[in-house]
């Protein structure tokens, strides 16, 4: 294995051991890695390259992913309460069943992403781009979609009263 690959494998091992909760990891490249079920609560992964990463079932409570590349990531059933996903790219990601209560999704790009059955209570998706995303059966009580783009998004069976002030909802299914 090359040095960078060694370093990356060592980091994955350390994350999997649970040693990185609360750690400032920064702009690491963990694209495509299997990090399912890990504990990265309160970790800082701002600007990280995480395309295609498997974070399903992971504890990401209070973690910072601002500006991270999470395209096509698997974050099914992840614990993301209070997580900061603002300005991250979640396009094509799967967050079905995730706990996004009180999560920061300000300016998040989530084109075609799946949030089916996610809990988004009191989340902050202002100015986010949810075009063609699926939010079927989500709990969106008190979520603030102010000026978000939900064109073509699927909100069928979503429950709760959310704020859609100045949101774009052309072709949104409700």
């Amino acid at each position: 294995m090359s040095a960078p690959a060694d370093k990356r494998a060592a980091l994955v091992e350390r994350i999997r051991s649970g040693a990185c909760a609360g750690e400032r990891l920064g702009e690491v490249d963990l694209s495509g890695c299997d990090l399912s079920g890990v504990d990265l609560s309160d970790a800082r992964l701002s600007g990280a390259a995480l395309k295609g990463v498997d974070l399903s079932g992971a504890n990401l409570r209070g973690a910072f992913f601002d500006g991270a590349d999470l395209r096509e990531a698997n974050m099914r059933d992840a614990q993301l309460e209070f997580a900061v996903l603002g300005a991250a790219d979640l396009s094509g990601a799967d967050l079905s069943g995730a706990n996004l209560q009180r999560a920061n999704l300000v300016g998040t790009k989530a084109l075609g992403a799946r949030f089916d059955g996610a809990r988004m209570y009191y989340s902050r998706p202002g100015n986010a781009d949810f075009r063609n995303a699926s939010l079927r059966g989500c709990d969106i009580q008190r979520a603030i979609f102010r000026r978000a783009n939900l064109s073509g998004a699927d909100l069928r069976d979503a429950t709760g009263e959310a704020n859609f002030e100045n949101a774009s909802m052309e072709g949104t299914l409700r």
Partner: peptide, 11 residues
């Protein structure tokens, strides 16, 4: 939730 200066000033 918390945020950052970069997120709020931009979005």
């Amino acid at each position: 939730p918390s945020s950052t200066v970069a997120i709020e000033s931009r979005f």
